[in-house]
Design a binder for these strands. Structure first.
Lengths: 411, 411
DNA sequence: TAATTTGTTTCAGAGGTTGACTTAACTGCG
DNA sequence: CGCAGTTAAGTCAACCTCTGAAACAAATTA
């Protein structure tokens, strides 16, 4: 007999009963284990951390152990005398998340486990950006990734595809100029052809810049509370995390913020968009290059030109940095972030950009005097979007393991 | 004997026990009554709306009645045959919120009750913007408002002051150029000199544009999920509500977003700020006027010039609309809102601005094709900030009445 | 062996649910 | 006017599940 699935009350919208109370405290406990991450945490430490009593913690831990979401590590450091505490840490088997991404030069797929560790990362070159060509390839990569995961006792419980453009309803890519897509329901197409084990696997679609921000957030230990991750791969997007939560809706089209009122007209129909100054192809074009030297990756092409000492590329980078600074200043005036990560391909070019951006921020941001803003390269760089996509999928279990518990108990 | 105060679990950060369960379900029930607002709701309707059973609802309703947070309205329409349901609605006595605002021409104070109705609204002209002059006046107005409230059996449980500039820690006004303030701890100064009944009354400080957005949101029945309210009084600020929640931090300095790369330099140190084109004094200056005709209110001055058919003011308004459109387009590209309210003094000038703003939004907003944006004047206009401030104070009780319950039970 | 800390077992208390019964109040029909 | 039908609301008991408190068992150090 399967127990009913109870949602934990995140908002005040649903009534809570005795059993949802249990579900809530289980989530609370599990998140403490997730937060402890590298250093296993004991039952009694959980008790003090959560405020629940030891018996309650013991019961909850029993459930988590039975569902194989956590494992008992060998006796950990006790610190003082007395019975040594038993360390608990996240299982490296069980639920996993799958991420897919379409990048400038390759398609990529990624599997992460509960701990957030990347267990599988796969790149495949491609030609032709037509949905009918690209999506089946991605589906094949997904199948391969799910198999590879199963070989390591991982069950893919969710999948997300990163798309370079605004996405509606976690499924429909509204506009992706670099792929030539318009109103493509990538989620439906992929979900049809991919399954995990016996169950169908719904594949969500998200904006690449926002997923990259999520990936960088995890990679930084979730320490930052308010930050923006500016990604330049195809387009320029901004992923915003405010107060530890990601912004919903169409948020983040930084590339189409105006930075010059007398600028050239953009593909979007407006004039003076950031993209026309700080997009990678725009930077190359400003230096009279077409970017054929990078093996398909414009960032590498720029990097080699800089190494070769081409003065025109330095000018173009300076102009790009100024434009980025203006756009980010507008953003920071509106939504108050304290950290700006240069992600995607910009992470490779960060050393040529940081100074120019900082200069504009100092000039233009009203709060810069009493609330300094840190600009730095993002650690994951171009891989952030796939990894973030995979994390966003497994994160649903990390945020609320009750679904997984019900699934395990039902078999 | 007083029962301990239990917080309701809004996030998953605290454990929930049996009694916090009760507190949670009480909040849930109370919010349903708040949401029903004008049409009294019965116990059995509450039961179906919340998912709690009738016995539980009855108990909770008894508690709320005993605390005088709600009242039994006379037998309401039953709809069909049978015993008519007893309508429950918010009490118009009990907790109240106090709002204070410094406006271009007057100081204002406002008291709202639980239902959100304005019960007291008071304006006092002033001269001299020095904190040592203005703050005591505001404190005196607060005292008068608290007295007036007490006469109607209202207890002021919270107070908020609206300040024209960025505010830190709900207390310190960092920068208010139009008042000449810098790093003024208005919250501390006011809290010292104001008390409600026997208890001290802490006075919070918030940004005026954001409080105005809150006020307009309530005035519109909280129907909009994602909207921005652009307020022009002194400065230009933007109050953002996303997914029904207000953005934290320094959010909303729309006035200092760049709209012309070759523009004049602004007081903030940057160039081409929106404020230099769409600020009320900027509009008047562009038409070669100094705004002495409006009795202190620049919006009225502009309005009279328009009525007089001055062609220069029409040009200035057109330019202001274009600038506003550019800035708002940048905002909408970044944070995805579906409604733009023209608040504060702009509500009076909306008919001269809407078309120009819409034109720029159509050109510049990427998502405008599939997610239309509505631009319209805000109903409350210049009063929105005081009212919003008062609402934000009483809203703490509306969001979680347990504090008030504990207070009532303890006496 | 005593002390200490950790984890487990047992039991009582609190709260909500279910279900049935009762009281209350209105509608509609004869 | 009076009665049945209908719906709303209060009340009571039995039951379930959760947490907390206290006692108990286990494992290590001194």
């Amino acid at each position: 007999m399967t127990k009913p699935v109870h949602r934990v009350a995140p908002h005040v919208d649903i009534p809570i009963r005795q059993d949802s109370l249990r579900a809530h405290n289980l989530v609370l406990t599990f998140r403490q284990i997730v937060a402890a991450q590298d250093t296993p945490i004991s039952r009694s430490e959980l008790s003090t951390a959560t405020g629940l009593t030891r018996p309650t913690i013991s019961r909850i831990v029993d459930d988590l152990l039975a569902a194989e979401l956590i494992i008992e590590a060998g006796p950990a450091r006790s610190g003082s005398s007395g019975r040594p505490r038993v360390g608990l840490s996240l299982a490296r088997t069980g639920p996993a998340g799958l991420g897919l991404d379409i990048r400038a030069d390759v398609l990529s797929a990624c599997v992460v486990d509960l701990t957030g560790a990347v267990r599988h990362l796969d790149f495949v070159p491609y030609d032709g950006t037509d949905p009918a060509t690209v999506l089946p390839r991605l589906a094949a990569m997904a199948d391969r990734a799910i198999e590879a995961a199963a070989a390591e006792h991982l069950t893919v419980v969710g999948a997300t595809m990163a798309a370079p453009g605004p996405v509606q309803d976690n499924s429909i890519v509204r506009f992706a100029p670099t792929l030539g897509w318009r109103d493509v329901d990538a989620g439906a197409a992929l979900s049809e052809s991919v399954s995990s084990g016996s169950a169908a696997l719904p594949i969500l679609v998200g904006n690449d810049a926002r997923l990259a921000a999520l990936g960088e957030w995890y990679a930084s230990g979730q320490a930052m509370r308010n930050f923006v991750c500016v990604s330049g791969e195809f387009d320029i997007g901004a992923g915003l995390l405010l107060n530890g939560a990601q912004l919903g809706g169409w948020a983040g089209e930084l590339g189409h913020v105006m930075v010059r009122s007398d600028g050239p007209s953009c593909a979007c129909g407006a004039v003076g968009c950031l993209q026309c100054y700080a997009g990678l192809t725009a930077i190359l074009a400003a230096a009279n290059h077409d970017g054929r030297d990078g093996g398909g990756s414009p960032a590498v092409a720029i990097d080699t030109l800089v190494s070769a000492g081409d003065p025109r590329i330095l000018d173009a980078l300076d102009e790009a940095a100024t434009a980025l600074g203006i756009a980010v200043a507008g953003l920071v005036n509106l939504v108050s972030v304290d950290t700006v990560l240069l992600g995607g391909s910009y992470s490779l070019l960060a050393s040529w950009l940081v100074d120019g951006i900082n200069r504009e921020l100092r000039r233009r941001v009203l709060s810069a005097n009493w609330a300094p803003i840190e600009v730095r390269p993002a650690p994951l760089g171009p891989d952030a979007a796939v990894i973030g996509a995979a994390l966003s999928a497994v994160d649903r279990v990390r945020e609320d393991p009750n679904g997984w518990l019900a699934r395990v108990q039902s078999r």
